[in-house]
Simulated scan of single mutants.
Amino acid sequence: MRLLLIRHGETPSNLEYVLDTGVPGPGLTDLGERQAAALPTALAHEDIGAVFASTLVRTQLTAAPLAVARGLEVTVRDGIREISAGDLEMLRGDSERGELYMRTVFAWSSGRTALRIPGGENGDEALRRYDAVVAEAAALQAGTVALVSHGAAIRMWTAARVDNVDVPFAATHPLRNTGVVVLEGSPSDGWKALTWAGETVTPSGAAGPTGHPVAGP
């Protein structure tokens, strides 16, 4: 199958550079609404048979124009929500404490899934819930499925589960609002990334920085 992982449109918290992961979360800025409205045209070449969004308002607002354009309902699932920041909630992502968020997230992708974000979830919990929604999407046999999700969650899950995306690549490639990662494969056979925000995926294969923490929420 073909899986499109789409980051939500811009939110006020993105502008403030803070870790805002709580449910239901903020809505979209004016730019975020325009980004969402542009998705149907940007993805006109994709034969999308199902659209999923997380339990956070920003993903549902982003998914709505795409679903309407395709005559589909948005399936809302908690499993693809943003990774909970726990005690780090609403800290600036570039603060000394806030940087712990993405360091922990990418440690999960490297296999250290028992680590826990203070007051939040661990990697086993985050991967399990995301895997469950991907498996549900694959079981639909809808051809191409769009999952409107969140930056940190997408980068963490792809680095952990996609054959040709490693941690250095995901860490150094923040996903802009309404950026799309195109995957091909299945839960049983594995996944390959075809493009990341329009660019062919070429993993770095070398150690790199952990990227900006705010690039997730």
Rank of each mutant, 00 (worst) to 15 (best):
V133S: 08
E184L: 06
T210W: 10
M1S: 12
D131A: 04
Y101W: 10
L147N: 10
D163F: 12
A153L: 09
I117D: 10
R176V: 15
G49M: 11
R155F: 00
R155Y: 09
Y17P: 12
A67C: 02
L19G: 06
A132T: 05
R77N: 03
I48C: 07
P187Q: 07
Y130L: 13
L100C: 12
G79W: 00
T158M: 01
G98A: 00
E125F: 13
S84C: 14
T202W: 01
R128C: 14
G179S: 09
Q60S: 15
G120R: 04
H8F: 01
N164Q: 02
A69G: 02
G185I: 02
L39D: 08
L61P: 03
H45N: 15
G32T: 13
G143R: 12
T158R: 02
R7V: 01
A193W: 05
I154N: 02
M90L: 15
A160N: 01
I80P: 06
I6M: 03
L19N: 07
T172N: 14
R155Q: 07
T29L: 11
L31E: 15
L100M: 15
S95K: 08
V165T: 02
L91I: 08
G179V: 05
W196S: 06
A36L: 07
R34N: 14
S186C: 11
P26Q: 10
W191L: 04
H212T: 11
Q141V: 12
M90Y: 14
A63Y: 00
A159Q: 03
N177L: 03
D124K: 15
G198N: 05
D163C: 12
L127M: 08
E99V: 13
A160M: 09
G93Y: 02
V162F: 05
L61C: 00
L100H: 14
L15W: 06
S95F: 10
V76P: 09
A139Y: 07
A53R: 01
M156A: 07
Y101M: 04
D94T: 06
R155L: 05
V18C: 09
G22M: 13
A139R: 13
L100A: 15
E73D: 15
L66G: 14
T144C: 13
G27L: 03
Y101Q: 09
P203D: 00
Y130S: 10
E184M: 02
L72K: 04
L175C: 12
S95H: 09
E89W: 04
M1N: 07
T113P: 10
Q60Y: 11
P24Q: 00
W157R: 03
N164H: 05
V57S: 13
L194V: 10
W196G: 08
Y130P: 04
R58C: 07
V165D: 07
A67E: 00
A36K: 08
W191R: 02
D163V: 14
V167Y: 03
T202Y: 04
L194K: 10
K192N: 11
R161P: 01
A142V: 07
G49S: 12
T21R: 01
F52G: 08
V51Y: 10
